[in-house]
């Protein structure tokens, strides 16, 4: 019973602390925040790994393996996407003045780049 109590305390305390910290995250960072918390929520990887801490039946092996793949997909994908997004945020102290391609070409280049991905 003390275990259950301790677990509830952990949940409550971390939820409250997280709430206080996250409430102050600016809107600008809400998408990266959600993307990162996605990676964090894939801590179920721990549960999936622990399935393999004891002898497993073939069915359990398959389900456990599937759980590991989906969870670790989230971990790896989540952190990498978040980093990609955040890397795009730039501050410019001086307005950029640079040569730009004619509009049509530029747009075509942007389009083909996007289509390629």
């Amino acid at each position: 019973m003390t275990d259950v109590f301790l677990m509830l305390v952990v949940f409550g305390a971390v939820f409250a602390l997280g709430y206080l910290l996250i409430r102050r995250v600016p809107q600008m960072l809400h998408t990266p925040l959600m993307s990162m918390t996605n990676a964090i929520s894939a801590v179920t990887i721990l549960g999936a790994l622990l399935l393999f801490a004891v002898e497993t039946t073939p069915v359990e092996k398959v389900l456990g393996a599937l759980a590991i793949v989906t969870a670790i997909f989230n971990v790896a994908g989540g952190f990498v996407i978040t980093d990609r997004m955040l890397a795009m945020f730039r501050r410019k102290d001086t307005p950029r003045v640079e040569f730009r391609q004619p509009q049509g070409l530029e747009r075509a280049a942007a389009r083909s780049g996007k289509d390629g991905t």
Partner: peptide
Amino acid sequence: GVAIGNRLLIACGATVAAS
């Protein structure tokens, strides 16, 4: 996390739920 008695899982899940 509660089901398998793992505090780390509970804590990480709690931050995500808060967010």
